Simulated scan of single mutants.
Amino acid sequence: MTATLNDWRVTTRPYYAPQADEITLFEAAYAARLPVMLKGPTGCGKSRFVEYMAYKLDRPLVTVACNEDMTAADLVGRFLLEPGGTRWQDGPLTLAARHGAICYLDEVVEARQDTTVVMHPLTDHRRTLPLDKKGELLRAHPDFQLVISYNPGYQSLMKDLKTSTRQRFAALDFDYPVAELEADIVARETGIATALAAGLVQVAAAARRLKGHGLDEGISTRLLVYAGQLIRQGVSVRHACRMAMVRPITDDADIRETLEHAIDAVLA
């Protein structure tokens, strides 16, 4: 492995609590070098899972936060002008494919479809990446794997994965953990009492029931951890919940009031 990828190595074991057999299934997919798609709501643990698997498999992890302004060159690479001439610089996808890292495209549906198609040759039997501007056909390192994630809750006619892209990936479904496990995760991540963490989870459950009834998305496990961290800093439970669990997900006054009533009822 080159010194370049040392910066992408996960050196500390991330905490991840499995919900089912996703670890075994991912290991099997990696052994076969299958590309994997992770589907699930915001903040449910998809990125933490990839980080954990990269650590467990002892592979560097190159992560790309996708956005609508990202171009194919941002993924693949480009020539840079320098005083002595031009120099080619690999993009993150090329870097991972060349040196055998796991490349993780986070929220891939945010990228334009004409950008994401550049990964297609890496996701079938060819495992190649044409670098047209450089005149190179890159053959992926034997240890390379491509992983993408997206939130199906934000699908629309304008923002969704093409069928030709979907069918190049094996897929794992993620969701928020069951209440007891989620409380354990929040307590473990923040150091607050398990009983208090369970109360935060109850409030989150109430918010998640409002999805599609005024809320686009419920309170994520990530936001519960934020609330717990604020509480550990001495912020009152009510203020921590408002700051981390209510204000981020809605500006609707009625829904905010409903959620604050739930906080008072559960955590008072």
Rank of each mutant, 00 (worst) to 15 (best):
S47K: 08
H120I: 03
E189P: 02
H99N: 12
E180L: 14
A28R: 10
Y154A: 05
D124Y: 08
D21G: 02
E217L: 05
T71Y: 02
I102W: 07
S149G: 04
H239A: 12
R78H: 14
A28G: 10
D252M: 05
L105E: 00
D143F: 01
Q113I: 11
R232Q: 14
M245G: 04
E189Q: 15
Q145L: 15
G214C: 07
G212Y: 03
R13A: 10
A240M: 06
S149V: 00
Y154T: 13
A20Y: 13
G77T: 08
A73S: 13
K46V: 03
S164T: 14
L223D: 10
M119N: 04
T4R: 14
Y226V: 13
E68S: 15
Q145I: 12
L157V: 15
C103H: 03
A198P: 02
Y226Q: 09
W8F: 15
R247Y: 07
M245E: 06
S156W: 03
T250K: 01
V118F: 00
G228F: 06
R168C: 04
M245P: 04
P248V: 06
E217Q: 14
V186Y: 08
V266R: 13
H141M: 00
R209M: 11
E27K: 14
L146G: 04
A262L: 08
R48N: 12
T165Y: 13
M119S: 06
P83T: 09
R13S: 07
Y30K: 14
T42C: 08
T115L: 08
L215G: 09
G77E: 01
Y176G: 05
L34V: 04
S156C: 04
W88A: 07
R87K: 11
V109G: 01
T194N: 07
A244V: 06
E260S: 01
D58L: 05
V203N: 13
G234V: 14
K46T: 02
H213T: 09
P41S: 02
M158T: 15
G100E: 04
H99F: 15
V76T: 14
L5Y: 03
D184Y: 11
V178M: 13
L267E: 00
E22S: 07
M37Y: 00
I219T: 10
D173P: 01
P41A: 01
A170S: 12
L93I: 10
D254C: 00
I148H: 01
L122G: 11
E27Y: 00
M1Q: 14
E217M: 07
A29Y: 00
N151K: 05
V235Y: 12
G135N: 08
N6M: 04
L34T: 03
P83H: 04
G43M: 01
F169Y: 07
R247V: 10
L157A: 15
A28F: 01
I263N: 00
A54C: 10
P142Y: 02
T123K: 05
R256H: 09
R87A: 13
M70D: 09
E260L: 09
L25T: 13
M119G: 06
E260W: 11
